[in-house]
Computed example of a mutant assay.
Amino acid sequence: MNAALDAGMLAPQAARRTRLRDYQAQLLERMQAAQSGSGATLHQLGVAIGGERYLLELTEAGEIVPPPALAVVPLTQPWYLGLANVRGSLMGVIDLARYLDPDTSAAGPDARLVSLAPRLGINCALLVTRVHGLRRPGAMQEEGNRLRDAEGHAWTPLSLAALVRDERFLHVALAPRR
């Protein structure tokens, strides 16, 4: 009976050691990639915006949270949803699907806010239709400006740093009428 108990206790310990070894190997791979400068494309955040899938650089994205209550700001673009208090920080919220295509919206039951990384210098969060989690672009096939994963889904890389430099993105106020 003691041998059976010992064997039953050893199996979970062996499984934990295997998971720990796997985690350490992944961590080592990430550290080596970061030191060689290739870490930016090791993993990216996969999101749906409207009906399209996009890849965001992890270094450009911040927190991911469910959409909180918004304070509407009058006389702003239809894609500017208002202001949200996210963990004590006031952030402008952009419906990225509507920004890209005025006839669509990212709102829905799976919608999330993805805040921009502080290094981008703008207190803003993007409403995305759904967060798909981490993706490995290196394991995908290139097809022009898009990537295709093993399941056949097309992904478009989206630079949040380029987005925050876009004049249209920076001007949320409606143009005054003349």
Rank of each mutant, 00 (worst) to 15 (best):
I64C: 10
G39P: 14
S105P: 02
L100S: 06
E63F: 09
S105G: 05
T18C: 02
R16A: 14
G39N: 02
M140H: 04
G37R: 07
L55F: 01
V47I: 14
A150T: 14
W79T: 03
D101L: 00
L96T: 07
L70E: 01
I122G: 03
R148D: 05
S38G: 15
E142S: 13
I49Q: 13
E167T: 13
R30G: 13
L113A: 00
A117D: 02
A48S: 13
P67M: 13
V86K: 00
A175F: 00
L96C: 05
L116G: 01
D6T: 03
P109S: 12
P74W: 06
Q44Y: 08
Q26Y: 09
R146V: 03
L58V: 08
L81V: 11
L81H: 12
M1D: 11
D95T: 02
N145K: 07
E52F: 04
H153K: 09
P118N: 08
A161E: 10
P137K: 05
I49Y: 01
E143R: 14
A117W: 07
R148F: 12
E63T: 06
Y80R: 11
G152H: 12
T18Q: 15
R87N: 11
A175I: 07
R148G: 00
R17M: 08
R136M: 13
G37D: 05
G8N: 05
L20A: 11
G51I: 07
G138L: 15
S159I: 00
D6M: 08
L70A: 07
S105K: 00
G121E: 09
D166Y: 04
R165M: 09
L163P: 00
A40T: 11
G39C: 08
D101F: 01
S105F: 06
E29G: 11
L120D: 01
P118V: 04
A33Q: 10
R112T: 12
T59Y: 07
V164N: 08
L20V: 08
T18D: 12
G82H: 03
G133C: 12
L42C: 07
A107L: 05
G138I: 04
N145T: 15
H171L: 09
A25S: 15
I64N: 11
D166G: 11
Y99I: 02
A7G: 01
G82D: 09
D103F: 04
V86R: 01
T41N: 09
D149N: 00
A48N: 12
D101A: 10
P68E: 03
A69C: 04
V172T: 14
N123S: 15
H132A: 12
L127I: 06
L45R: 06
L134M: 10
G133T: 13
Q24V: 14
L45D: 00
Y54K: 14
Q77F: 08
L45T: 07
L134C: 10
L170D: 08
A7V: 05
V73Q: 12
E60F: 06
A150D: 15
Y23S: 13
